[in-house]
């Protein structure tokens, strides 16, 4: 079974973790100013890259903490894990969803 390195607990089996979707999707600055289409874009639309992808995971059967991981969607390699509030390593350059946030708030 694939091991996922929890930032707190270390390597644990994938079955202990819960997937949380794309990371770093910014909440709109002015939610009331959005059209329905823009709001739907924020709520439902996520990137689907082939390659490095920043996503949220939670160590559900362990410390129950959310954290971020950069995973290569083509190889399923976990390239980096980092705690919530931190930014992904520049060297990996995942698709972060910042583009979408700008669309939503534009």
């Amino acid at each position: 079974m694939q091991l996922i390195p929890c930032p707190w607990c270390g390597d644990r089996e994938e079955a202990e973790f819960h997937y949380g979707g794309q990371a770093h999707v910014a909440y709109p600055d002015d939610p009331h100013g959005l059209s329905d289409a823009q709001w739907a874009q924020f709520v439902f639309f996520r990137d689907n890259p082939k390659g490095p992808f920043a996503e949220r995971w939670m160590h559900a059967a362990g410390c129950r903490r959310w954290f971020n991981a950069v995973r290569d969607t083509a190889t399923h390699d976990l390239l980096a894990v980092y705690r919530t509030g931190q930014q992904p390593p520049q060297s990996i350059a995942p698709s972060t969803g910042q583009d979408q946030a700008q669309v939503a708030t534009a």
Binding site: C9, R12, E13, A15, E16, G62
Partner: peptide
Amino acid sequence: CVQTQLAQAG
């Protein structure tokens, strides 16, 4: 002290 699964039970 580890929180984990033993035979799929937490």
